[in-house]
Simulated scan of single mutants.
Amino acid sequence: MIRLYTEDDFVKMRAAAEILCQTHLAIKKVIKAGISTKALDDFANKFIVDHKKAIPAQLGYGDFPYTLCISVNDEICHGFPSDYILKDGDLVSIDNVVNLNGGLADSCWSYKIGDLSDRNQELMDTTLFALNEAIKEAIPGNRIGDIGNRIQTIAEVDHDFSVIRDFIGHGIGKEMHEDPQVPHYGKAHRGPRIQKGMVFTIEPMIASGNWQSKIDDNGWVARTVDGSTCCQFEHQLIIHEDGPEVITDQSKYQLTDDDLAFIDAYKF
Rank of each mutant, 00 (worst) to 15 (best):
Q181N: 04
T37S: 02
Q250G: 08
I94P: 00
S117R: 12
I135P: 09
M198G: 07
P140S: 02
M205R: 06
V72C: 01
F43A: 10
K53M: 08
T126G: 05
G102Q: 13
G197W: 06
I94R: 00
Q236V: 07
N45A: 09
L40M: 13
Q250R: 15
R165Q: 14
T224V: 12
L59G: 05
V163S: 10
Y111N: 05
G62R: 05
V182T: 11
D249T: 01
K214M: 12
Q181P: 00
I135E: 13
G173I: 10
V97E: 03
V199K: 00
I247N: 01
K87C: 00
I172G: 13
D106Y: 09
I215R: 12
D9A: 02
Q236N: 08
V30H: 06
F200T: 03
Q58R: 09
D242F: 13
L86W: 02
G171R: 03
T126M: 14
D249F: 01
T67Y: 02
P81T: 00
S251V: 06
R143P: 01
I263Y: 10
P183Q: 03
V30D: 03
H235K: 11
Q236S: 09
L86T: 04
T256Y: 14
F129W: 11
M205T: 01
I31H: 00
T126R: 10
L128M: 14
V225C: 01
F200C: 08
T23K: 00
G219R: 11
L86S: 07
K29T: 14
A105T: 00
R143A: 01
C69A: 14
L40H: 11
K32Y: 08
V49D: 07
N99M: 11
S36V: 08
D146H: 09
A44R: 09
I238N: 02
R193G: 06
I164N: 10
C77M: 05
Q212R: 13
S251K: 14
E245S: 10
K112N: 14
F200V: 04
I19V: 15
Y185E: 00
D83V: 13
P204F: 00
T23Q: 00
A44P: 08
K46A: 14
G243S: 05
K112F: 05
D125Q: 03
L68K: 03
I154Q: 06
I85G: 05
G197D: 07
I215S: 03
N218T: 12
L260W: 10
T201Q: 04
L100W: 09
L116E: 05
I147D: 07
L86Q: 05
G79S: 06
L237Q: 09
E175I: 01
N218P: 05
I194R: 03
T67H: 03
E245K: 01
T127N: 14
E245C: 04
V157C: 08
D216T: 14
G173S: 11
M124F: 14
R193K: 14
A15V: 07
E245A: 06
F10C: 00
N99F: 06
G148H: 08
I27W: 04
